[in-house]
Amino acid sequence: MAYRFQVVIDSRDPHAQADWWAETMGWVVEPSDEAFIRRMVSEGFATEAETTTHQGVLVWASAQAICPPDQVGQKERQRFLFQTVPEGKTVKNRVHWDVRLDGDDKDEIRTALESRGATFLWEGREGPHGWYTMADPEGNEFCIS
């Protein structure tokens, strides 16, 4: 049996991270079901403290997901979920993801990412294949190639 998965990223600010990564990937922040959230609060399954307003929309405070725009609402969608954790990042990631640029110039993308808060860490190369290892605004490593 093959299983589906989502990538979950610990975050100080899951909504800011979701916004940043949605723009970086050309993905979208998954829409919030405000009526569902209100119903969960009114029925006692959640509290107001578990919600927040982000960009004028009622959302769960502790997490936010992104996915490709053509997969919104699909069960089988690719997905990054950013979730709040109490501690900040202190060491190198044990897992990271590679963003495949599909022919876009990695120097231009690097510059654009740095202007939005990413940090260049190092350049890697194996034979003819080269990449840049970067860190997002919260310090999570990723590569562009």
Rank of each mutant, 00 (worst) to 15 (best):
A2W: 14
F5R: 02
F5L: 01
Q6C: 06
Q6P: 01
I9Q: 10
D10R: 11
D10M: 11
P14T: 00
P14C: 07
P14E: 06
H15L: 05
H15V: 09
A16V: 09
Q17V: 04
D19A: 14
A22D: 00
T24N: 02
M25E: 01
M25D: 07
G26P: 08
W27N: 00
W27P: 01
W27R: 04
V29W: 03
V29G: 10
V29Q: 12
D33Q: 02
D33H: 04
A35H: 05
A35W: 06
A35N: 09
I37C: 05
I37D: 04
R38L: 14
R39P: 01
M40I: 10
A46K: 02
T47W: 00
E48K: 08
A49S: 13
E50M: 13
T51C: 14
T51P: 07
T52P: 04
T53G: 02
H54W: 15
H54N: 12
Q55W: 00
V59A: 03
W60S: 10
W60Q: 10
S62K: 10
Q64Y: 04
I66M: 10
C67W: 08
C67N: 03
P68D: 12
P69H: 13
Q71I: 04
Q71A: 07
V72H: 07
G73C: 09
G73W: 03
E76K: 14
Q78E: 14
R79E: 13
F80E: 00
L81W: 01
F82K: 00
Q83V: 06
Q83F: 10
T84D: 01
V85E: 12
V85L: 06
T90F: 10
T90E: 15
V91F: 11
K92H: 13
K92A: 15
K92W: 07
N93V: 09
N93G: 10
N93D: 15
R94D: 12
V95K: 07
H96E: 15
H96G: 07
W97L: 15
V99L: 15
R100V: 13
L101M: 05
D102Q: 11
D102V: 06
D104G: 02
D105F: 07
D105G: 07
K106Q: 12
D107N: 14
D107E: 15
E108T: 13
R110F: 03
L113T: 06
E114M: 15
A118W: 01
F120E: 04
L121E: 13
W122C: 14
W122K: 15
G124H: 05
R125E: 13
G127Q: 07
P128W: 01
H129P: 03
H129F: 11
G130H: 08
W131E: 11
A135F: 10
A135C: 09
A135S: 13
A135G: 12
P137W: 01
E138W: 04
E138R: 05
E138I: 01
G139S: 09
N140R: 01
E141G: 03
I144P: 04
S145V: 02
S145W: 02
